[in-house]
Design a protein around this nucleic acid. Sequence first.
DNA 1: CCTATTAGGGAACGATCGTTTCCAAATTAA
DNA 2: TTAATTTGGAAACGATCGTTCCCTAATAGG
Lengths: 202, 202
Amino acid sequence: MNINTATRTPGRPREFEIEAALDKAIVVFSERGYHAASISELKDAMGLAAGSLYKAFKDKKAIFLASFDRYKQVRNALLEQQLAEGENGRDKVSRMLRFYAEASHGDNGRRGCLVVGTAIELAVYDADAAERVDRSMARSEALFDSLIREGQADGSIPQAIDPAATARLLLSVTQGLRVLGKTGPNRDRAFSVVDTAMKLLD
Amino acid sequence: MNINTATRTPGRPREFEIEAALDKAIVVFSERGYHAASISELKDAMGLAAGSLYKAFKDKKAIFLASFDRYKQVRNALLEQQLAEGENGRDKVSRMLRFYAEASHGDNGRRGCLVVGTAIELAVYDADAAERVDRSMARSEALFDSLIREGQADGSIPQAIDPAATARLLLSVTQGLRVLGKTGPNRDRAFSVVDTAMKLLD
DNA sequence: CCTATTAGGGAACGATCGTTTCCAAATTAA
DNA sequence: TTAATTTGGAAACGATCGTTCCCTAATAGG
């Protein structure tokens, strides 16, 4: 008998952790892209047999969407952690930009962003992918907008700034950084973009 | 006997124009991406049999690289045309940004940019693709830089602006616009980004 | 205990991939 | 005219793709 009876389902229990497997899949999908990432590569990276993979996920697209959702969850948590340490609105905007710059150089940069990859490779002809990309972009844009307003309320950002328009520009900058990061500019060049973008808030 | 004997090679002459065929391939590669674009789709779009395709190009990658080069050639010519009509440095920077904004909404936006697509899907593990992406990005950055300096020389852009840093930022903005354009924001939102970016030159 | 159910894992499947082969057609050079 | 060469086009190739099947193992419920 099992202590956790209430949450257990009949049948043999799964021997691997879904989220740990998805973390491996995220790496493969990020650096190879959706189409170039084969089931063979995925099962090797995730440490599973093809049969087990298809019992946990309906098909390749389901593996991808689950990876995307996991990626967003992890990245959002890390970002919120960074923002929580911000002193005021302006500092939080700077921290958010630096969060993207940090991810846009070196190995992380070359690995790439799953959101950008999905937008480029999948969103045009897959509605599920497009919806997730749209939601992610809208969320980032809204976050920039609210941080700018917060800065205007606490006096760290001038009232003359247009929050909505500036949020859209900063969103463009972050997505652009992710593209440039794929061919790996060095750290200084990525952060130079952040410094220059912050001048918009003077 | 043929008037053009000097330029003719022995054997049956090619019955289609390479550049016209590449223009069709560009559309397929742009909206599907490299891996999702099958030879079957390409030959249909280009109006060729598989055999003919492989006599004109070594392999799929060669078709892609030729499409990329053709794409860059066409886009560069269009951009230079736009820039030639600019009144001063500042106006030329604005025109360049608007050139990208125009390509980043509606059907053109959804079709996407071959440079961005190559950076995301191919550059990480294909040296030929990476080199072309790097060259394209470096060229755009250098162009922004020179246009800003031109503006500083003709008085349309303040001396306090840092040309190199600002050029890097504007490059990020344009590449970001291309990403956002894949899920199709409307025209006004794309151009709002241009207007806000231009404030960096005040 | 037995039955139902689910997971692990590898073999096998049809489909499609990129590519090559083959033959007829069209051209140049001699 | 003949030989050499190249293209057009369709059929065929092996490889790999995503997916399913099948058998064994492990669990819950009765």
